[in-house]
Simulated assay, not measured.
Amino acid sequence: METAVMELAEDPVDEDRAAAVRLQIQEMLAVDAHLAADLSKMLAAASVTVTAAGERSVAAQTINGVVVTGDRAQVSR
């Protein structure tokens, strides 16, 4: 696992390296029910905090469109 993670850190956009890490995680969770339960609890308890501060600031967890904060802006699609 450590080697796969280190290789992914060297090239984080490499889909094959990411797949190797995912596979090793899946294998670890399949053989260790306690680890799987602990991870499930941690993920369920995780939360996202999004804060916007300042004039015309934007806060969002995910933006799938256009965000305009300026005056007289025109958006064409």
Rank of each mutant, 00 (worst) to 15 (best):
M1W: 07
M1F: 08
M1N: 08
E2M: 05
E2V: 06
T3W: 00
T3V: 11
A4H: 12
A4Q: 14
V5P: 09
M6Y: 01
M6H: 06
E7P: 01
L8H: 01
A9T: 03
A9S: 05
E10Y: 10
E10G: 15
E10H: 13
E10W: 05
E10N: 15
E10C: 12
D11E: 02
D11R: 01
P12T: 04
D14Y: 04
E15A: 05
D16R: 12
D16I: 04
R17I: 05
R17Q: 10
A18L: 00
A19V: 02
V21N: 00
R22H: 03
R22F: 04
L23Q: 07
Q24N: 03
Q24W: 00
Q24H: 02
I25L: 15
I25T: 04
I25R: 00
I25E: 09
Q26M: 00
E27S: 09
E27N: 09
E27F: 04
M28Y: 07
M28V: 08
M28L: 15
M28G: 08
L29Y: 02
L29A: 00
A30E: 01
A30Y: 02
A30I: 01
A30T: 01
D32V: 00
A33S: 11
A33H: 10
H34E: 15
L35H: 06
L35P: 05
L35W: 03
A36I: 02
A37G: 05
D38W: 00
L39N: 06
S40P: 00
S40W: 02
S40E: 11
M42L: 14
M42H: 06
L43V: 15
L43Y: 10
L43T: 13
A44S: 14
A45L: 02
A45D: 07
S47G: 07
T49D: 13
T49K: 15
T49G: 11
T49M: 12
V50D: 05
V50L: 12
T51F: 07
A52C: 08
A52D: 09
A52N: 07
G54P: 04
R56K: 11
R56G: 09
S57K: 07
V58I: 15
V58S: 11
A59G: 15
A59I: 04
A60H: 08
T62H: 12
T62I: 14
T62W: 09
I63Q: 03
I63G: 03
N64K: 10
G65L: 05
G65M: 05
G65E: 07
V66C: 06
V66Q: 04
V66H: 11
V66Y: 07
V67T: 13
V67N: 10
T69Y: 09
T69G: 13
T69R: 12
T69N: 12
T69L: 12
G70W: 10
G70M: 13
D71K: 14
D71I: 13
R72A: 10
R72I: 08
A73K: 08
A73Q: 13
A73E: 14
A73M: 13
A73H: 10
A73V: 15
Q74G: 09
Q74L: 14
V75I: 06
S76Y: 10
S76D: 12
S76W: 08
R77K: 13
